[in-house]
Write a protein that binds this DNA or RNA. Sequence first.
DNA 1: CTTTATGCAAAGCGTTTGCATACTT
DNA 2: AAGTATGCAAACGCTTTGCATAAAG
Lengths: 127, 127
Amino acid sequence: MTRQRQLIYGIVTAAPEHRTAEEIYDLARAQMPSLARGTVYRNLGLLVQEGLIRKLEMPDAPARYDREPRSHPHLICQRCGRVEDLAASEQLLASIRAELPVPITGYDLKLYHICPACRGGGKDGIA
Amino acid sequence: MTRQRQLIYGIVTAAPEHRTAEEIYDLARAQMPSLARGTVYRNLGLLVQEGLIRKLEMPDAPARYDREPRSHPHLICQRCGRVEDLAASEQLLASIRAELPVPITGYDLKLYHICPACRGGGKDGIA
DNA sequence: CTTTATGCAAAGCGTTTGCATACTT
DNA sequence: AAGTATGCAAACGCTTTGCATAAAG
């Protein structure tokens, strides 16, 4: 557990945001300018392996990191890419299990929509 | 609608397999050796946009293409990466909708497990 | 004849890695 | 001191793109 590892872990877990490696790198460098990009990727990978955080692969965009490692649904805006956590639901899990004869080790459920900001009067999102 | 586009579309829709762009490229070249890799990517992208096929982003692996463009769950082996289609279930969709106040434009549900071949006696999968 | 797609090769982007140095234990 | 992680920079894998040529409508 090096200082850089703690810093990176702290940034991911501090907020409910789902940041990209690059965003984490920028935030981390504000506190430790010597930090290397490779170190960020290496540590994010390790933290994921250890089950401390979760990696979210995003369609046609860099991966994002979630401080909640347990499987739970995500609501994603198709236009701006904003990611929102949804509570893991027993109801939903039961329905998923009902579909399957086999035991599941985990799931990844992405729900797509257009967020209010993007749908709204013209003021829009990142993309 | 060029010959190459038809060829590519044909390969994706001919079988229930979920092939990568590279696999599609190889199969296509067997019939049209002059075909360029870029053309495959361009056409797959167009076919996806037109809603004729679906792109499946895979974790830490190249994307795969599904001949069924409508949202439906996929069962993925964590070890060998094999992808299996599951029927879209009304039950499941209802549960998903029940979680949300907002309307969904589509979803992507990946269920992870270890397939029989990989779990089995030693005979294993691709990776 | 105008528009759109192709083949080719180079570039792009997110991510990974080899290596010598520096930290952790 | 032994082991592991770091910083740096180069390499990687998948995918995209610019451009001149060729095909489609």
